[in-house]
């Protein structure tokens, strides 16, 4: 089975479980390292960012953190960290429901014959810093709400502007998050900003593969645990012909896999572990996925040629 086909299957199964699993009794908890939006009624689990801003993170008072809730925060963080260590960026490339929506839009673009928008490498680097800004924003604002320096409607500051909040519930028949909330000035400002971002992001997602992943604060959080992750992309530099296929097919425009000539670990910080580079690499064993040091998938000339033949 081709890696792309397997990923396609896993992504769709994951989408069903994470988006609709709650309707069948699935509850994977509030610490998932992917955009399984809690605003989707009947979802099978929650994105960790919501909990991190709220009831299992920075939204708690010192009093609460020093008691039982402090243990809950620690336990859910360990569950989050454990999930990241086990599957690493595969959460992004293989399981994230919002990531799958990106891939659907990219597939639609290709079907329509539109070329992917290219962004200069230097711009990509600059844009990449936004996710750290967003991570800082969602960590710093909730304590200010807790101590009463900010209006209570600032709680869940990232959810308030997250493009997944209006878009993912649509796929569960909930258009209401596309509403402007005119309850007060803060809710109005946040929903207006959220809808502008969601509209803009939808176009960006259509024009550029995995556009939102450039800005995803969850990716930034997962990146902090990168040294511990078990799933890694490994290169055998001696075998690499330098054809550049890996760079061309990468949805995140990662250069490191192509450029690296000495190190074997080419797991880049923004890599989604989608495996497109690995599948397209025309050299036997030049790239492979390792999981706890065991080889899972390797690049193969036969597979790559078959893929090229199919595209031609």
């Amino acid at each position: 089975m081709r890696l792309t086909s397997l990923r396609f299957l896993v992504q769709h199964l994951g989408f069903i479980v994470l988006m609709y699993g709650g309707r069948f009794g699935v509850n994977l908890g509030p610490a998932l390292p992917c955009f399984a939006c809690p605003y989707v009624v009947g979802c099978g689990g929650h994105c960790y960012l919501m909990g991190l801003q709220g009831y299992i993170g920075f939204g708690l008072s010192w009093t609460a953190l020093s008691g039982f809730d402090g243990w809950r925060v620690l336990i859910w963080f360990l569950i989050f960290a454990g999930s990241v260590v086990l599957l690493g960026k595969a959460w992004c490339g293989w399981l994230c429901p919002f990531g799958l929506v990106h891939d659907w839009l990219s597939a639609l673009r290709r079907r329509l014959g539109w070329r992917e928008a290219l962004i200069a490498a230097s711009t990509m680097v600059r844009l990449g810093w936004i996710k750290y800004g967003l991570l800082a924003y969602l960590i710093l604002v909730p304590p200010l709400v807790t101590v009463g320096w900010l209006h209570p409607d600032f709680k869940l500051p990232f959810c308030n502007i997250c493009p997944a909040k209006p878009l993912l519930p649509l796929l569960a028949g909930q258009p209401q998050y596309l509403s402007l909330d005119c309850t007060n000035a803060v809710t109005l400002g946040f929903t207006a900003l959220s809808l502008l971002i969601a509209g803009g992001m939808l176009v960006g997602m259509f024009l550029k593969d995995r556009f939102f992943c450039l800005f995803c604060p969850l990716l930034a959080l997962i990146r902090l645990l990168k040294p511990l992750t078990a799933l890694r992309l490994v290169k055998t530099p001696q075998l690499c012909h330098g054809c550049g296929t890996c760079r061309r097919v990468c949805p995140m425009d990662i250069e490191e896999v192509y450029q690296e000539q000495e190190q074997t670990d080419v797991q880049a910080g923004t890599c989604l572990n989608c495996g497109r580079c690995l599948e397209s690499c025309p050299v036997d064993g030049a790239l492979h996925f390792n999981w706890f040091g065991r080889r899972l998938f390797s690049s193969s000339r036969r597979l790559a040629l078959r893929l090229v033949g199919k595209k031609l």
Partner: peptide, 16 residues
């Protein structure tokens, strides 16, 4: 009660 879907759709379209 304060949610306005049609206004929200306009803002969403403006963003796009």
């Amino acid at each position: 009660a304060g949610w306005n879907l049609s206004a929200g759709l306009w803002v969403f379209a403006a963003g796009a």
